[in-house]
Amino acid sequence: MLEERNRLARELHDSIVQSLYTMTLFAEAGVRNADHGDTVKGTQYMERIGETSQQVLKEMRLLVFELRPLALEQEGIVGALSQRLDDVERRAGVEARLIFDEPISLPSRMEEELYRVAQEALNNSLKHAAATHLSIRIATNDGLVEINVEDDGVGFDTDLVNQSGGMGLRNIKERMERLGGSFTIISSISSPGEGTKLRVRAPISDPQTTGEPAHP
């Protein structure tokens, strides 16, 4: 928990605080230009403030969803992901779909880990992929749960990212190891429009043996 809080604090400082400071500089520059009668440059700085504020709003929404959403406790992973897509992706102009089997019943520990994995993929898509379409599929079969997250963004070099452990891949790997599951990522910067595909699979543990309730 402490490590998670420290990570959120770093992200808050590196993204939100720095962006707000940049907006302050733009505002001061805009006022100076307006005082000297240069309304053209003043307007340009105002436009930059608007652009930066939109980015800050996007970053704030992502940080809010870094915390455990109430919907995950009340409605399970399907409800939490549905709310996430409504509150973040669709507001950012991304056409997002959630496809799932009925019903999805998982232990709460699994839901927490799988939600975080899906969240990493969604955050990467929103921050780096410039995707316009995105889908999440959740299915259970033969004692396994599978989640697929796909977008039509610009993609990335999987070899390079795997070596560095960046873009949250280290977190995804650790979470899937805790669940005894696996994940695969298909992406390429040389195939624009094909985007990135993440697939995770894990055995569904028995809630009675873990002592955790399952969401219906």
Results as ranks from 00 to 15, higher is better:
159 D>L: 13
112 E>M: 10
143 G>I: 05
136 I>V: 11
121 A>T: 01
151 D>G: 07
104 I>M: 04
106 L>A: 05
139 A>T: 13
179 L>I: 03
183 F>A: 01
143 G>D: 06
182 S>A: 12
169 L>M: 15
172 I>R: 01
99 I>E: 12
155 G>E: 06
177 E>N: 14
191 S>C: 05
131 A>H: 04
193 G>S: 09
161 V>D: 11
128 H>M: 06
123 N>E: 14
178 R>E: 11
180 G>A: 06
187 S>D: 06
105 S>H: 06
100 F>C: 07
148 N>M: 12
165 G>W: 09
108 S>L: 12
178 R>F: 02
127 K>V: 04
135 S>I: 01
189 I>K: 14
162 N>E: 13
99 I>Q: 11
150 E>A: 03
185 I>G: 02
180 G>M: 04
137 R>G: 04
136 I>S: 01
133 H>S: 12
114 L>C: 03
104 I>A: 02
96 A>C: 02
139 A>F: 00
164 S>M: 14
115 Y>A: 13
122 L>V: 14
171 N>E: 14
139 A>D: 08
109 R>L: 11
163 Q>E: 15
123 N>T: 15
187 S>L: 10
148 N>E: 14
137 R>T: 07
168 G>I: 10
152 D>H: 09
152 D>C: 06
110 M>S: 07
181 G>R: 03
176 M>W: 10
112 E>Q: 13
159 D>M: 11
128 H>D: 08
174 E>Q: 15
